[in-house]
Amino acid sequence: MAITDKIYVKNHRQLSSQLETSIPRGAFSGATLDLLFQGDGLEKLDEATREKVLDFAQDFLDCDCDSNPYCGCPEEKFLVYLLELREEGHSPEAIVDVMSAEYMVYAYSGDVLSFLDRAVRILEAVEDLAVVEGNDDARRRAAAAIRRLEG
């Protein structure tokens, strides 16, 4: 299961109540993306919540794909966001705190840790393949990315 399947809307029930409609708990579920992409009913949200929702939509749903928001770009942008937070030195717990504060979404820190661990294992495989292929540039880039993620 992808980490984006484990990203949840914070205060889900309160948000549903303000919107006067039921929305899924998952931040990247189809119905939630529809709501964010189309913006229907966002004027019903209190100002602070509306700002967070609009920030999320702007930062992750903005792309030129014909099938937006179902093109995979929102999920890919969110993965990059998580990796950048880790490269900045945030622990999995701090990453959850930051995403909650910035976008009103959350995950369990253990899920974030698993995601980061998988990212490092994939980069180690890339590094090993680069050695086998004799691609020193790819090996160096993979090794540098591992160092940044491991802090």
Rank of each mutant, 00 (worst) to 15 (best):
L36P: 02
A2K: 12
L54I: 14
S114N: 09
I95R: 04
L79W: 03
A142S: 09
D34K: 11
V98R: 11
I3S: 05
A2L: 05
I122R: 10
S29Y: 08
A107H: 01
P69H: 07
A27E: 04
Q18Y: 08
V105K: 01
A48Y: 14
P74V: 09
I146Y: 06
L35S: 03
H12G: 06
C65V: 07
C73S: 11
L33F: 05
D5K: 14
L113E: 15
S17D: 14
L123R: 03
T4Q: 02
V53I: 13
Y108T: 09
L79A: 10
M99N: 04
I3N: 02
I122V: 11
I23S: 07
V112F: 04
A57T: 08
Q38S: 05
D128V: 00
E51W: 02
S16R: 06
F37L: 06
P69E: 13
V96P: 03
S17L: 14
G110K: 09
T4Y: 09
A144V: 01
S109L: 03
R141V: 12
P74N: 14
E43V: 15
C71M: 06
R118T: 08
R148P: 00
L149F: 07
L123S: 07
Q14S: 12
A27W: 01
V120H: 01
S22T: 13
A57F: 01
G89R: 11
P92H: 07
L61A: 06
A119P: 00
H90V: 00
A138I: 05
H12V: 03
K52H: 12
L54W: 01
E20K: 13
C71P: 04
L129H: 01
D137F: 08
A2N: 13
H90A: 13
R141G: 04
Q18E: 15
E150N: 06
L42K: 02
R50F: 11
S22N: 11
K10W: 02
E51S: 12
C73I: 11
E20S: 14
L36S: 05
M99I: 15
R13C: 01
G41S: 13
E93V: 11
L45F: 10
L113A: 15
I146N: 02
C63V: 09
H12I: 03
V131D: 08
A101L: 10
L116F: 02
F37V: 05
A144T: 10
K52N: 13
V96L: 03
L123C: 09
D117G: 00
L61M: 12
L35R: 06
H90I: 00
K52A: 14
M104L: 15
A130M: 08
Q14V: 12
L79Y: 11
A144W: 04
E124P: 00
K44N: 15
C65K: 12
D64E: 15
N135A: 09
V53E: 05
D137H: 01
A94F: 00
L45Y: 08
K6F: 09
S67T: 14
D64R: 08
R141W: 05
C73P: 00
L85K: 12
A2P: 11
E127V: 00
D55L: 12
F37S: 14
V126P: 00
E84T: 05
D137R: 09
V98T: 13
G41H: 14
R86S: 09
